[in-house]
Design a binder for these strands. Structure first.
Length: 550
RNA sequence: GUUUCGGUAGCUCAGCUGGAUAGAGCAACGCCCUUCUAAGGCGUCGGCCGGGGGUUCGAAUCCCUCCCGGAAUGCCA
């Protein structure tokens, strides 16, 4: 029997006991939680306190009554008792927990997979940075968050499509083309300057150089605007893809904004809005009535000069996503986009979707510090610290871990000096070290003639407090997945990984694993094998590697 | 002004779907390597949980209000 089944049975027995007492009320959930302090038992219920009002008795008396009517038979309960001010604390037969070790060793990295998303297909859009320059550190947070969240949702049983919306049409691409044009001409000593809204990043110069190498001075004499634009988009997209891949972030779909125009989807969407009476003209522009759907005001979708605003193709894009049949759209956007939420949701409703089909997760800004001073990130100026540089310097692990460790809606400071430092000040090494240490124990065991092939499934020598502290961490892994998935909170997983690593390190200092006692050694190896599986799997969900050696 | 995120240990942050003495990492200090990796363990120090009201048996957590900081408030993207 699995732990979850046992907990359900225990809850049922609480229900029985309450029914016998004549208190039971369906509206009050019976909750079992794991107390912070182990001396309060393995599980604890506040049920007596919650019934105090209904029963009109003191929680302590109710708790006593519940316990007296509680039938412990076949519930693996070694102790059940009442504590002030009315908690009911339960201790489970410790050996029961050991079954989870067997389950992990049997299922491997499939342990913790849930069945939450039956029939659901999520589309999760993130990064979606314009292809006008390299990714900088600020963008890395979105990449890390979206990717980690996707992995967690998949683990929880959801079907997930990761998507990047490529803004390859519109004004910024126009500026990109002009910027490349200037850089190209400068390579031939033509006296031209980057326009005011142009891009100054080194990638632009690199792109111009590549064009010069391949095509020589061809575009000095003929107009290269369209060529520069298309070449630039492709070239910069390649850079983005590589930087993301190095950061262990891959996308299933790269969706081109321009493809919307090619299929007339933007025009059709505008027509749809017009036909359904969601628009009106004013001051020579076309407005949508978003204020009728929780947006603070109406928004222009066709400017008086006849061009679209930023949101117009984006509405067509989101309609397209809905048409593709996803059951939920998750957009991960930067903190500067929060004013965008309501107008996009309004638009979703106008094109026929329910507003809760679209879920927008806002990432707060990252303040980057170097030598204790804030560094401003700007793609226009080209002065930003790029993700690619950072990853090639320290690898993806510290950065992925750092971003995953914070909840999405906290404004965080990134201390570059600390991120780069490869010492114990950097918390990622603490958890990776746990994994490497386990592997090292396995190596030692092998040289002493032990094999991991036939791990024991019965345990007779596991008694230490640290052992059970470690095992109880393993046991809750599926709950952590569910929680992180439900709350869209990758950092919950990081907290867990940390606790697991702590439990292991503590165990390590307390128990000698490899010894001449065959039974003791094999049983400990079995627990560590399970620990290693979970550590590695949990780290993989946040895109961090689990090295065997450090 | 409005919207929104935040204010918890010296620093960076968890805890916020109400629970038992408020946690972690780093920093500081002290112990622990003839035995599986000391990037480790164990311990000490450190807190009006921004202020004030309220709800509750119980509030860092929920409600109201005020203060402080960031972000957004474009026919930019």
């Amino acid at each position: 029997m699995r732990l979850n089944e046992l907990l359900v049975k225990i809850k049922n027995e609480f229900k029985n006991s309450l029914t016998k007492l004549g208190y039971f009320d369906e509206n009050i959930d019976i909750i079992l939680e794991i107390p912070k302090d182990k001396s309060n038992g393995d599980y604890s219920s506040n049920i007596a306190m919650r019934y105090a009002k209904i029963a009109r008795k003191s929680p302590l008396i109710i708790a006593k009554d519940i316990v007296e009517n509680f039938n412990k038979k076949d519930l693996f309960i070694t102790n059940i008792q009442v504590a002030n001010p009315g908690f009911i604390n339960i201790n489970l037969d410790k050996t029961f927990l050991l079954d989870t070790v067997n389950e992990i060793n049997k299922l491997g990295n499939h342990f913790g997979e849930l069945d939450e998303g039956k029939g659901e297909h999520y589309n999760i859009e993130f990064v979606s940075v314009n292809p006008t320059g390299a990714l900088h550190i600020g963008h890395a947070r979105g990449a890390a968050a979206g990717d980690s969240l996707s992995r967690i949702l998949k683990k929880a049983g959801y079907k997930v499509t990761k998507e990047y919306y490529v803004n390859d049409a519109g004004n910024q691409i126009h500026n990109l083309a002009l910027s490349i044009d200037v850089r190209y001409k400068q390579l031939f000593d033509v006296d031209v300057e980057i326009p005011e809204d142009g891009y100054n990043g080194p990638e632009i110069i690199e792109t111009a150089k590549k064009i010069k190498e391949e095509y020589g001075d061809k575009y000095l004499s003929e107009d290269g605007y369209e060529f520069f634009r298309d070449y630039g988009v492709n070239s910069l997209l390649d850079i983005l893809k590589k930087d993301l891949a190095d950061f262990r972030v891959e996308f299933d779909v790269w969706f081109s904004e321009r493809s919307l125009y090619q299929q007339n989807l933007v025009e059709k969407t505008v027509d749809y809005l017009k036909e359904h009476g969601f628009t009106y003209e004013n001051d020579g522009a076309l407005w949508m009535k978003s204020s009728e759907y929780d947006d603070e005001k109406d928004r222009v979708i066709i400017k008086s000069d006849g061009t679209y605003t930023y949101i117009t193709p984006d509405i067509a894009y989101h309609k397209n996503k809905l048409d593709r049949g996803y059951t939920k759209l998750i957009d991960i956007l930067g903190g500067d986009h929060h004013g965008y939420i309501n107008r996009l949701k309004a638009a979703i409703e106008m094109v026929g979707g329910k507003s809760d089909l679209l879920e927008i997760e806002i990432l707060q800004m990252v303040k980057v510090l170097q030598n204790g001073v804030e560094v401003k990130m700007s793609k226009r100026s080209g002065k930003a610290i790029t993700l690619g540089d950072l990853v090639s310097e320290v690898g993806p692990d510290p950065i992925r871990y750092f971003f995953a460790a914070r909840s999405l809606n906290t404004q965080m400071d990134l201390d570059l000096d600390l991120a780069i430092r490869q010492t114990n000040e950097n918390p990622v090494y603490y958890v990776q070290y746990a994994h490497a240490r386990i592997n090292s124990i396995f190596e030692t065991a092998k040289t002493k003639g032990y094999s991991l092939d036939n791990l024991p499934t019965k345990f007779t020598t596991i008694t230490g407090e640290k052992s059970f502290a470690l095992i109880s961490q393993l046991v809750i892994y599926p709950d952590v997945i569910k929680n992180a998935s439900d709350l869209r909170a990758p950092h919950k997983l990081v907290n867990y990984i940390n606790s697991l690593a702590t439990a292991f390190h503590s165990f390590y200092n307390d128990e000698q694993v490899v010894s001449t006692d065959h039974v003791k050694t094999m049983e400990r190896l079995a627990i560590l094998n399970a620990t290693k599986i979970i550590l590695k799997d949990a780290l993989s969900l946040i895109g961090v590697s689990a090295p065997n050696k450090m």
